[in-house]
């Protein structure tokens, strides 16, 4: 069975492929995701990057990328460790402050317990850690009927609300 992901609250076959670096011939298939610096290097070299996304780490200074993000169909955020919260801020900035409309994907140490928070900062695509049961994980989206943030304070933003 093809590897699966959670996308917009459903389990579907993975639509993105994460690459460790640029292929030797410099030709990148649509649907691939390149590490940020490889993506930038290829772009600077004039390569065709249609349909290719980029991935970011927690320590990336993403403010420099604001101008180019509109060009990519997906931004992947790496969570190296369950307890590392930096990408939550990246997601919030990309989705909410900058109004990015493509997919925001997380990968790495992603357990079901993070889903509800990640969803709410604007992540809509999840490559879960290998051992996670994806269908059971969907339960995370139904846990809460409302939240405090992102609506007027105290007004309880409704469940479906996302930072976008």
């Amino acid at each position: 069975m093809a590897e699966q992901m959670i996308l917009d609250g459903r389990v579907v076959p993975r639509r993105w492929t994460l690459l460790d670096g640029a292929p030797a011939d410099g030709v990148v298939a649509p649907g691939s995701i390149l590490p940020c610096h490889d993506w930038q290097a290829l772009r600077a070299a004039g390569a065709d990057l249609t349909g290719v996304g980029l991935s970011l780490e927690g320590d990336c200074d993403i403010k420099a990328l604001r101008e180019v993000l509109g060009e990519v169909p997906v931004i992947a955020l790496h969570i190296p460790k369950f307890t590392d919260g930096r990408c939550y801020t990246h997601a919030r900035r990309i989705r909410h402050h900058w109004g990015y409309e493509g997919d925001v994907l997380v990968y790495g140490d992603v357990l079901r317990d993070q889903l509800v928070y990640l969803w709410r900062v604007g992540v809509n695509a999840f490559h879960m850690r290998q051992d996670q049961d994806l269908h059971a994980s969907l339960g995370a989206f139904r846990l809460y009927s409302a939240f405090y943030q992102y609506g007027p304070l105290g007004s309880h933003a409704p469940r479906g609300e996302r930072a976008a």
């Binding site: 919260g85 801020t89 928070y117 709410r120």
Partner: peptide, 17 residues
């Protein structure tokens, strides 16, 4: 109280350093 509500399961800040 406003800050209490604000911080309760704030999605961005549950995994601080």
């Amino acid at each position: 109280e406003i800050l209490r509500q604000y911080k309760e399961l704030h999605p961005e800040f549950m995994f601080l350093p």
